[in-house]
Amino acid sequence: MRSVLLIAAKDLRIELRSRVFLYQVIPFAITTLVLLGFALDADRAALRNFSSGLYWVTVMLAALLTAQRSVSLERSSGAADAIRLSGVAAAKIFAGKSLALFVYLIVLELLMVLGIVVLYDATLTDAGLAAATAVVATLGIAGAGTLYGVLAAGSGVGETLLPVLLLPVLAPVLISATRAFGDALGASSVNGWAWFGLVGLCSLLYMLLGGLSYGPILEADS
């Protein structure tokens, strides 16, 4: 557990220092929300109805950037090799990287909730469901982002390959989190908690698969 926290804390510290998240990822997410608003002709009713889906699409696009950044931190400096030489188990490296990614994304999602309230006129009717969905879906996104980030990077064309690999994999999370969030925002009349269950199942699967396959992918990269 100590090495997981060390790796996560290191990633977060680097992000605080470099301010890439603050100056690039957050503005990107806000710009995307604004542009999606323009695309729907700033129709308040439509935006309110679709706010849940637009929110999660934006989260996924921002997750692509953060996952890419998380991998490049290690690869550009050769630190990926140094981590392997430290003898830390691959599953722990995966958990540490995923934890850091989870923290960035949760911070981003909190800001984006404000964004959809202000820009899309959304209202939070079930904060518990929204929070639970955000936490569990973000775990899945972070796990899949970490796993596919390193997989794409190993191909040598990571920047362009990652979206092609990751977005289809995240489709079940996008669909189920959108439904659950829609219920939490009062924008759809579905059983949000049932969809939350599906989000949880997907996230659990991604984390398990990530923990098991991260090591072999790292080794294959050598």
Partner: peptide, 28 residues
Amino acid sequence: EVGLVAHHMMLYEDLTVVENLEFWARLS
């Protein structure tokens, strides 16, 4: 049991010298 000095520095550019070394010390 090996130590490798490679072409890449294997260090993080946005951390200080001490932060880098303390991170690797703790990890290993």
